[in-house]
Each structure stands twice: as structure tokens, then as C-alpha cells.
Computed example of a mutant assay.
Amino acid sequence: MIAAEDIQFTHDIDPMSVAAFFVRADQERVEPDITPLKLQKLLYLAQANYLASTGQRLFASHVEAFDNGPVVDVVRRRFQGRQIIALDSRSEEISAELPADVHDFLTRVWEKYQDDSASQLWRLTHSQDPWKDAYVPGQFHTRIPDEAMRQYFTDRVPAAERIFHANVVVVTPDVFEDDAVADERLHAFLNS
């Protein structure tokens, strides 16, 4: 049996590598549409889901509350404007090989949100408490606490709408409803 502390998650990777993943994935579509605004929302959703799924940061950067929603500033400074981001020397030079578990996780994020427009993702992130609670009109660089994202996505976003790390198994309470032996095993596993 694998103990909970033996499960490993890659964490604190370079946020530019995550950004490059999304830009490259978008370039494979018939009609690429990833703008800096959409990229920022994808980064936030990836970080928040990873925090809720693993308890650790996906990338080693804070998410901040700006007027247009959650922002990862190091990526904002690199990709600005309103145009669709194209593969060029800026994105080629940040091509880092992602660990397999991160690549798998980001693929899941991309599959869920790739068809959403920047404005749809803007509305989604503006409706969520982590940004709303941290945002101060006209103020920039206000950190959205990791714990706020983790807690909101764990407690308020239904499991069916979340993205989980491949090493995380979601089990609903009714699975063990009438199975005392399985219930004891689960309890032993969680307390090991």
C-alpha cells in the first residue's frame, strides 16, 4: 500500500514554462485564440486547481488581483497587448521540458478550458471569491493568497468541474456506505 506522504507531486516550476505550454497547445488548434488575457486566466485556473488537488503550488509565482482579474506578473510583463499570441522567439526561448505529471495536468486544464474565450474566462474568474476578496480597485500587485485559492476550489467548486492531478483519486462518501472493511482500510490509509 502507498502511504499518503509517499505520493510525489512536481511543484514550484517556472511559470513561463506553464505559459509556453498553453501557447504551444493553442498553436495546434485550427483557429488559435490565446491572448494575454486568456493566458492569465488559464494560469490562475491551473494554479488554483493544482493547489486544491495537491496542496502545493504548480508554479513558483504569486497570483495577483488586477483590474482584469487574476494575473501572474512575470508572464504579464512578457506577453502584453490584446493580440493572439503566436509562437515566436519569445515563446521558443522559454521552452522547458515539463515533468510528465505536470504535462498531464496541464493537458487536462487545456482540454477543459481551450474552447472558452478570454471573456468567458474573465467572467468565470471575476465571479470567484479568491479574486473578488483580494481585489482592490485601482491597486495592482495585491496577492491572491494560495490558501484562498486552495480552499475555494476545494470547498466551493464541485469535483466534476475541477481538474485533479493524476496521482489524486477522488472518492465520494457513498462508495464506502455499506462496506465496513473498505471504510476501515480507507481510514487506516488516511492515518498512515
Score class of each variant (00 low, 15 high):
Asp183Leu: 06
Phe59Leu: 11
Ser53Gly: 06
Val18Phe: 11
Trp110Cys: 14
Val109Ala: 02
His187Leu: 14
Ala86Ser: 10
Leu58Met: 05
Phe189Lys: 15
Ile85Trp: 01
Ala100Val: 15
Phe153Arg: 02
Lys112Arg: 11
Thr10Lys: 02
Met149Arg: 00
Arg29Val: 06
Pro173Cys: 13
Phe59Gly: 00
Ser192Glu: 13
Ala159Gln: 11
Met1Lys: 00
Ala19His: 11
Glu147Met: 03
Asp88Val: 09
Thr125Val: 07
Asp155His: 08
Ile7Ala: 14
Pro32Ser: 02
Asp33Tyr: 00
Trp131Ile: 07
Glu177Asn: 06
Phe21Val: 06
Ala60His: 12
Ile163Met: 09
Glu64Cys: 06
Pro130Met: 01
Leu42Gly: 10
His187Arg: 14
Gln139Glu: 07
Phe66His: 09
Arg90Trp: 10
Val74Pro: 00
Gly81Ala: 03
Arg108Cys: 14
Ser89Pro: 03
Leu121Glu: 12
Ala159Asn: 04
Tyr135Leu: 07
Arg78Met: 08
Leu37Gly: 13
Ser119Met: 13
Asp73Ala: 08
Phe164Ser: 12
Val71Asp: 01
Asp133Ala: 11
Met16Gln: 14
Val175Tyr: 15
Val71Phe: 03
Gln8Asp: 13
Thr125Ala: 06
Arg162Trp: 04
Glu64Tyr: 09
Pro137Glu: 15
Glu111Asp: 08
Ala25Lys: 08
Ile13Thr: 01
Val75His: 15
Asp104His: 13
Met16Thr: 12
Ala100Gln: 14
Asp178Pro: 00
Phe140Glu: 11
Gln114Arg: 12
Ala166Trp: 00
Asp155Trp: 09
Ser192Ile: 07
Val157Thr: 06
Leu37Glu: 08
Leu87Gly: 00
Ala60Ile: 02
Ser127Arg: 02
Leu37Pro: 10
Ile84Trp: 01
Glu92Phe: 09
Gly55Lys: 02
Ser61Thr: 12
Glu28Val: 13
Phe176His: 15
